[in-house]
Design a protein around this nucleic acid. Sequence first.
DNA 1: CCTGTAAAATGTAATGATTACAAAAATATA
DNA 2: TATATTTTTGTAATCATTACATTTTACAGG
Lengths: 133, 133
Amino acid sequence: MERIQTLLRNHDIRPSYTRMAIYRYLDEHREHPTVEAIYDALSATLPTLSKTTIYNTLNLFVRHHLVKEIDLQDHKRYDIVRTPHAHFKCDVCDTLYDIDITPPIAPKHADISDVRDAQLVYHGTCKRCRQAV
Amino acid sequence: MERIQTLLRNHDIRPSYTRMAIYRYLDEHREHPTVEAIYDALSATLPTLSKTTIYNTLNLFVRHHLVKEIDLQDHKRYDIVRTPHAHFKCDVCDTLYDIDITPPIAPKHADISDVRDAQLVYHGTCKRCRQAV
DNA sequence: CCTGTAAAATGTAATGATTACAAAAATATA
DNA sequence: TATATTTTTGTAATCATTACATTTTACAGG
Ligand SMILES: [Mn+2]
Ligand SMILES: [Mn+2]
Ligand SMILES: [Zn+2]
Ligand SMILES: [Zn+2]
């Protein structure tokens, strides 16, 4: 918890209790939760928490490169920034799995000036859904 | 135009005039247009065209694997199915460029049963936006 | 050609995630 | 303590997409 406090400070974010709670939730739940999931989980201990605060806080974290936003067709998912990795999205149950490979470096390209990030997402059916015929 | 007709038929899609027009637009405009862009472009020659029809048609094409949906945070983009390739999204002007590399094969993974598709998107600033300081 | 039937296209209303905004609460500063 | 600043909250607005009912079009059989 001390760790999170200094981490936020190092990124020029004032470590309010709510912000630390949201960061800690993401740190302890690597399944790429939605705003809804974070809200449901944290409301229990922070009864006055509002979804607007979660949206604000997550956008703040994204701007300060503490968290990444994963764009899928439905809701946005959030992932703590750590070593680069890829994802697998099950199109049946919508689970988003981590895949431990590093996305390839972007090749040189006439139109591109600088590349800041890469996002690699696989799609298909996960093992659990495959078995549940 | 004959070509598109038989292509749709081969994918079990009845080649109505509207459907062929939408397919042709995607085939001739590889900049990954949005529904809005398609609507604006085709309304000129198809004055009664409705956005609902475009949505319906594109979803039909996606289900039949003629077109891919590209998930970005804002609007959905559509890309004709062709050889696998990656994309670069300029976070300043929102342009989506094609990058001619093949996304890597997904490695074996305990939770994954079968992988049907891969989507590789780079983010950054494009050359045009970089120069326009 | 008619005519009936299915498919396609349309217009409008509903949905729902995200954002805008202004007020209230909390926190820092003096 | 008083005051300024930041954070949080609640509600309303936005807007892309979908649902749904209706109209239009295409087509097969007579
Ligand atoms: Mn992840
Ligand atoms: Mn493309
Ligand atoms: Zn699954
Ligand atoms: Zn650009």
